[in-house]
Design a protein around this nucleic acid. Sequence first.
DNA 1: CACTTTGGATCACCGGGCGCT
DNA 2: AAGCGCCCGGTGATCCAAAGT
Lengths: 333, 333
Amino acid sequence: MNASAKSSPSIRDVAKLARVSHQTVSRVLNDHPYIRPATRDRVLAAMAELNYRPNRAARTLATSRSNTIGVLLTASASHYGPASTIAAVEEAARHRGYSVVLASPGRVEEAEFSGALDHLIHEGVDGIIAVAPQIRAAEAVAKLHNPVPVVMIQCDSGDPRLSVDNRVGGKLAAEHLWQLGHRRLALVAGPEDWSEATARRHGFEDALTAVGSRPVAVAQGDWSADSGYRAFAHLRGSGCTGVFCANDQMALGLIHAAHDDGRAVPHDLSVIGFDDTPETAHYLPPLTTIRQDFHMVGRRAVDSLLSAMHGTPKRGTLIHPKLVVRESTSAPA
Amino acid sequence: MNASAKSSPSIRDVAKLARVSHQTVSRVLNDHPYIRPATRDRVLAAMAELNYRPNRAARTLATSRSNTIGVLLTASASHYGPASTIAAVEEAARHRGYSVVLASPGRVEEAEFSGALDHLIHEGVDGIIAVAPQIRAAEAVAKLHNPVPVVMIQCDSGDPRLSVDNRVGGKLAAEHLWQLGHRRLALVAGPEDWSEATARRHGFEDALTAVGSRPVAVAQGDWSADSGYRAFAHLRGSGCTGVFCANDQMALGLIHAAHDDGRAVPHDLSVIGFDDTPETAHYLPPLTTIRQDFHMVGRRAVDSLLSAMHGTPKRGTLIHPKLVVRESTSAPA
DNA sequence: CACTTTGGATCACCGGGCGCT
DNA sequence: AAGCGCCCGGTGATCCAAAGT
């Protein structure tokens, strides 16, 4: 019955070694006042000697706080945006002493989605960050009125608002093309039920309205390059000279289709994307796009969630996207 | 003191309602034999009525098993491969009743890495899947001899071997180019300290050796498209007519650089990549590449880890990659 | 000597699981 | 077939003892 190969030492083992009560050890752990420095040092020394680490399950059970936050991810975990956001969330959370548990329902079906939410809640998380850009997901969350705070990100409709200002992004795209001299603009929008897609579209359309114009054609994609390729067919007859694609992948597909159709970008058609994924600088031609800072979104989400958990929710400000001009846009021929 | 708005019901609340002891409820929960059907039904009914859900922290404390697995991710969470693997891991784990906690050390520095490992262990995970393709990471794990099973994926040196057979992949690339008639082949390798990069390189070189040839130039990148662009300068004077890039992003960058240099792909230069990310079909030209099934790697990793946790580790077989021919390769001019 | 600060111990409890009866 | 009691490893409330002024 040696303590060496045994399971990890408990607070009482430490207490025995430091010749205090286990409660005193607990006090040291929790930075309680009124501990004599000498005693504290003895306890700390004992902890070090035993290589003691508090048991999280026990602590969770006693305090009913798990120091864990859940990340709910609908689909698209392999997309650049969500993936980098999650990495940022994990990092920010860890620096603040929180662990991250993951749940990614395969579909956005109401059942699967709220099932995943449920999974996290009964996992005992103290709060949830939902990377759930679909409007339906947002609605599902809203109607569940959960026992823990939930922060939605990449979802313009949310509150606190945590995302890039997609409206401004759409506006930047429209203005850029307009200023180059394009007058016949088309749009390849993202899925209707993604709030970000809607916001980008509105931003784009509003900017055109402001100068007395409107899109000459609108196609809808599903964010994939494939869908961008297919979208070209819908725009082909519109006589447009500039196209705004709601993300970079669709822009890539569109350019491919244009190329297959014998139209050169940007000479015959200017194309602008959205996101600025790391590869876009090497597309042929290098893509003009709207950059958003996913990493910052992730960090802010954690800040926001922790505030909410401490009972002081705060309203964030939207992050500004930025126009990155490369070679896929130019003045019309 | 009503139970309505109170914290979730416990096993004893259920017991009271079903008029049995809490122990009997526990038996029902754990499918113990020797429970009279009538009693079991009473208990189940009580659980349903109270909407009872067992408390995971309590169960973990009592059994010292958390039903949680840790996923350790070094860097590159935003890359396509790791991201899709993680999604697959989470799904497979959830279907088997496990939760997934995430840890992603920013760097592969020994300290940060083993810190993250430590974080997971003291989080109480029952096992760990490390998506840590760097050789150094693998070594760090090996020397730590952890209290829980660790499975390394995307790391050819690991055992059980859980990844695509990168050697075969490199071989497929070489053979494809050779069969098209190319005799002067170059290589853009991945970082030296990634075992996958090394395996791809060896596969490529071995295949050339088998036909009495060797690469006329070798450049090294860091997986990014930028590095692929820069690699072109090293290959430029070698007179190569075919290049194997160890991933698709570097291939994209290389094609960009070739284009800037006035060389057309595939007419002047054939290029083949590795991974088959969803966008590659829309690169200009669409990229010939080696496909690997990340999703399957993730699922197998979970299987393998669970086996190891149950004390019956099993050796997996490497997954075979597949050549996908598109338009970036052709016979030399 | 009464009245605070400090310092530390004792007890009950969180929600379940296991061995014995 | 099912109940009793203790234990897992922590935490908070309470209570007592030694100091300080």
